[in-house]
């Protein structure tokens, strides 16, 4: 096995959803669509269940960014998911602003169950943003 420093990229916590976006992230692996290994996923039942305190905890404890791979309109739990997840993101970004943190460290995008390529694009561009932001 190779060795060496591998942890130079920004650390991103992804909240995926068990039925919708997590299968897409699995499929990204199946298709060998590579993305930074500093992207970690915790699945939740629905993106509208994510508590702002979890996001704040992650950012305060050392994650550089949090990405919500939201259900979007595919949510099996109802049509209000998109709106509710949007409200969580807005409320959390306001908390980040109030605490002098960059609200762009929290990002959300709808990732459907076959959206492997969009997921990879999102986490790569988010990684780039966070890398640049850390140097400024």
């Amino acid at each position: 096995m190779e060795s060496g420093k591998v942890n130079s990229s920004p650390k991103i916590l992804v909240f995926s959803t068990e039925k919708i976006s997590d299968p897409a992230i699995d499929m990204a692996g199946l298709l060998k669509l590579h993305y930074p290994s500093t992207v970690y996923t915790i699945p939740v039942p629905c993106s509208s269940a994510i508590k702002p305190r979890w996001i704040i905890h992650a950012l305060e404890q050392g994650f550089d960014g949090v990405f919500i791979a939201a259900d979007g309109t595919d949510c099996p739990y109802g049509e209000t998911c998109t709106e509710k997840t949007g409200e969580i993101v807005s409320a959390t970004q306001q908390i980040l602003k109030d605490n002098g943190m960059d609200p762009a460290r929290l990002k959300m995008a709808a990732i459907c169950s076959v959206c492997s390529e969009p997921f990879v694009k999102h986490v790569k561009s988010f990684t780039e943003y966070l890398s640049k932001a850390s140097k400024e």
Binding site: E2, I25, G29, H34, Y40
Partner: peptide, 24 residues
């Protein structure tokens, strides 16, 4: 899940994959 979201997703980065697997 250390296959779809680790070994296959990071087959281009073995040390990175190992570190991620440990944390997961």
């Amino acid at each position: 899940n250390i296959r779809e979201q680790v070994s296959w997703a990071h087959s281009d980065n073995k040390p990175g994959a190992t570190e991620k697997a440990i944390k997961i």
